[in-house]
Write a protein that binds this DNA or RNA. Structure first.
Length: 183
DNA sequence: TGCACGATGAAC
DNA sequence: TTCATCGTGCAC
């Protein structure tokens, strides 16, 4: 597998979201690696996107989102689940892609469909917030032989408060994949 | 300093 | 449809 370089993340967020589908999320602990294939994502386009956390401005929580691309933005939701995002575009753009579901590949236990379950199965928590994805223990890579697939576009989940932004087609998943969280 | 509310998931 | 559970942002 080939680890994605920072340049990959330093591009238009929707483009990055599309291309993250089919890639491998890798978490190394000790001498083993948990690996999942990314099958569902959502794009959050920056401070003007009312559904994005960065729409609150630069705060302690959104600091990582406002930072440079290729870093993990991990936060606690509903007091009990973690959500994992990848920061995209140039520093200050405050854009990110939420990873919503994985197809298990290696060393994953439990379900991986939905952002909370994804993080639980990968053992991702806030200790990884701000982690550089060009590191050797937590990164995203391309499979040696990527499969072809078509992409389904849908409104994002759970952002009904965001007005017109809730209707935008910014949720993407691999058509027909059994590990997508919702049809 | 207090409080309403989630980029969720599971049960009923 | 309801609830568990707590950090965050904003009102007071």
């Amino acid at each position: 597998m080939r680890k994605l370089a920072r340049d990959f993340y330093d591009r238009d967020t929707v483009e990055v979201a599309h291309e993250l589908l089919g890639k491998a999320l890798v978490r190394v602990s000790g001498d083993s690696a948990r690996i999942g294939r990314i099958v569902e994502v959502e794009a959050y386009l920056g401070p003007h996107d009312r559904a994005a956390h960065s729409s609150k401005g630069l705060t302690a929580r959104t600091r990582v989102m406002y930072g440079p691309p290729g870093h993990a933005y991990v936060y606690l939701i509903y007091g009990m689940y973690h959500c994992m995002n990848v920061v995209t575009q140039a520093e200050g753009q405050a854009s990110a892609v939420l990873l919503r579901a994985l197809e298990p590949v290696s060393n994953l236990q439990g379900r991986t469909q939905g952002p909370g379950l994804l993080c639980r199965a990968m053992h991702i928590d806030r200790q990884l917030n701000g982690h550089d994805l060009s590191s050797d223990d937590f990164y995203i890579a391309e499979f040696a032989t990527p499969a072809r697939f078509s992409i389904v576009k849908r409104p994002r989940i759970g952002v009904g408060y965001a007005g017109l932004w809730a209707r935008r087609l910014l949720r993407f998943y691999i058509r027909g994949n059994a590990f997508v969280s919702r049809r």
